[in-house]
Design a protein around this nucleic acid. Structure first.
Lengths: 244, 244
DNA sequence: CGATGGATTGAAAGGGCTCAAAAAGGGTGG
DNA sequence: CCACCCTTTTTGAGCCCTTTCAATCCATCG
């Protein structure tokens, strides 16, 4: 198998969703089969495609089976800010739970495969028939809020060096939870321009900051594969605390 | 009355909560009286006090009747980032809805009066007995997420000049909704240091940026009273779009 | 009246940006 | 397998927005 796991070549693409859910509640048989049934409608989108338009309303959920996506907002003059990154196992446009109205557009950053689960959010309501989904929904909401808060702190008060370290630690933490990291190595299929839009930096500065981290032997990044060589040092630099 | 409204001297302090709720759903009599009953336990806290510790769990809601608060996170070396500002009418620590665990500490920025509503969140659940509260909860969650997103875009991609304009427009928008602005004039009881922590800037630069905005006749700010003289121009500068 | 917190100003340094161009990859068609 | 094109990464240089460090000013208050 080798790098297969890291490169996200998994036999059953739906397994990643189940693995994600299982972190927060152990589902019963009924719930597991409902979940599996929701994942059958698989679709592919190319990089850069808009998965969910801003201000759109929908009761459907998009489970991200493979590939990376983001929610982003652009200013009138073209500056773009990525609000949050969405990784395999995440739900794209999870926010529709609230008012069912996307507050920012979601885009594919790489080619992605998603499962379109229409009306899934109904099952997620407290009033839904599945007792354990509420716990999962709350956990996902909490994770999302934590991501937004981290993004604010990074952009508001950290240097480029700290920001980049922090974001990479976050990626590792999130991927490791769904089994997409081996030790401290994981795939990060993002261009430096995308990183820049996520960090609130210029591409050039992302490049130079990455080089600094490499020069200091804190990490390697080649061919889209990141290895955090000194995770403890990076965590200290970035003031990083993993979600519980 | 004059400036009384702006200075937040209102006869019935609980009215501001009802006004806030009424924006999102028209409550029935039962709901209104439940809400009123929740507001009787009024408490005062001085500026700088910690209203909700980070990582604390609670099913109680704090209705902010008067004064301003924030959620904030500090880095190990003392740098502080305000995640979001909480204005009169807001619910402090609203996030406990999710997992009932505060992700960031909440602090009073001025002396505040709050109503402590224990177990209020139960009434907010979809399973609660009050049919209109779900709509309100969703609207509040949406507003909060929008605030976090705005904070990210400001800090990540806007200049100091744009950031400050944007934040002041947001304050106006939010205060106007609960009747705490007259035209484009409102009270903003924040020091420049607090603004700096909210904007991800240094105090000195906030000061200079404010002076620039004043010099250009875009606003006035004296004695904690802001007047946006050219709201349309400010909105264009800041790429501001009010919540629907 | 000294003490204190906040606003303001000046000067200098620096982190990060812009502009520009060169390398390095990665496909694609011939 | 090479030529060509387009994207991405890397470098260099200069600039500027923002920060830091220090004072000073100002109002409030015990």
């Amino acid at each position: 198998m080798g790098l297969d796991i890291i490169r996200h070549k998994v036999a059953d693409p739906g397994a990643i969703i189940a693995r994600g859910f299982a972190q927060y509640a152990s589902l019963n048989e009924q719930e597991n089969s409902y979940l599996a049934a929701q994942l059958v409608n698989v679709q592919r989108y190319p990089a850069r495609s808009e998965l969910i338009p801003a201000n759109s309303e929908s009761a459907a959920a998009l489970f991200l089976l493979s590939g990376w996506a983001c929610r982003a907002r652009s200013l009138a003059d073209g500056r773009r800010q990525i609000i949050e990154f969405l990784l395999p196992g995440d739900i794209v446009g999870f926010s529709p739970t609230k008012g069912r109205r996307a507050l920012a557009a979601a885009y594919a950053l790489t080619p992605v495969t998603v499962s379109l689960a229409s009306n899934f959010y109904q099952a997620f309501d407290d009033t839904g028939p599945f007792e354990h989904f509420t716990a999962v929904r709350r956990a996902l909401e909490k994770n999302q809020e934590m991501r937004l808060i981290n993004q604010i702190v990074r952009a508001g008060r950290q240097t480029a060096y700290e920001r980049l370290s922090h974001l990479l630690l976050e990626f590792h933490d999130r991927l490791a939870r769904v089994g997409l990291a081996r030790d401290y190595t994981f795939a990060m299929p993002l261009t430096q321009e995308i990183l820049a839009d996520g960090l609130g930096l210029s591409v050039v500065h992302v490049n130079r900051t990455l080089q600094q981290l490499r020069r200091e032997q804190l990490l390697t990044l080649t061919d889209g594969i990141v290895t955090l060589l000194e995770p403890a040092t990076l965590a200290r630099i970035a003031d990083f605390q993993p979600a519980d």
